[in-house]
């Protein structure tokens, strides 16, 4: 074997090692487009809430000077249904793009790296979700948006150990937006739209640009 050949072999071997280490310890098929899609649904949801559900509500409130119990209850149900719809749409679209990317990379979507990523994201996220439902039990709506953003940010920071590390910065940004929004209670929806809509879209585009642009 010539020296040149041997060097080629060695380099290939090192690359194999690297690839195996990376593939086996991190889930690398998260697609940037997943982020963009989730962001778009979040913005759409926020727009429906602001211009659909809240439009009449504010109008009636100023007209009557109060709201009835029934109206308030209906508002809650509408908002929860909308939130659930946005979550499902964002999740499915995110899932689709990630599935597509893993398919292109020829790795399976459900392996031990994705399992680990899944559980490490779900634990802080589900805790946050239950915490928020707990607050709603006492009709405390003030901290819903900050809590969503903060718990989601923490979930992303935790997830970053098991996937592309860039997601950590998205997590930091979500936490910061969440903390800032504590200062302007009542404008939660705008912060929510910024955190889940705009940040997701920016992050998604950056990730797509960095890893997927062909």
């Amino acid at each position: 074997m010539s020296e040149q050949n041997q060097q080629q072999d060695t380099i290939r071997e090192v690359r194999d090692i690297r690839q195996m280490m990376e593939r086996s310890s991190r889930f690398i098929s998260l697609s940037g487009l997943s982020g963009v899609a989730a962001g778009v649904f979040a913005l759409a949801g926020a727009a429906i809430a602001r211009f659909g559900i809240f439009k009449d509500y504010y109008f009636r409130y100023t007209e009557l000077g109060h709201w009835s119990r029934d109206e308030f209850r209906q508002l809650k149900i509408q908002l929860l249904a909308l939130a659930a719809g946005v979550f499902v749409a964002a999740f499915l679209s995110a899932f689709y793009f990630t599935w597509r990317k893993s398919h292109q990379q020829g790795v399976s979507l459900w392996n031990h790296t994705s399992r680990r990523l899944f559980w490490n994201t779900v634990i802080p996220l589900a805790t946050g979700g239950l915490f928020i439902l707990g607050m709603l039990q006492y009709n405390d709506w003030d901290f819903v948006a900050p809590a969503c953003l903060i718990f989601y940010g923490l979930a992303l920071v935790n997830a970053s150990k098991y996937t592309l590390t860039d997601i950590r910065y998205l997590g930091y940004c979500e936490i910061i937006v969440g903390l800032i929004s504590m200062k302007w209670i009542g404008y939660g929806l705008y912060f929510w739209a910024a955190g889940f809509g705009i940040l997701h879209i920016i992050y998604g585009i950056v990730m797509w640009w960095k890893y997927e642009r062909a």
């Binding site: 071997e13 194999d16 090692i17 690297r18 195996m20 086996s24 310890s25 399976s108």
Partner: peptide, 22 residues
Amino acid sequence: LGVMSILAVNEEVSFNDLKQML
């Protein structure tokens, strides 16, 4: 070499996961 690379960065890996990755 692949098995060693995977085990170097993972505490414990099952036979099936190794099979899938390699």
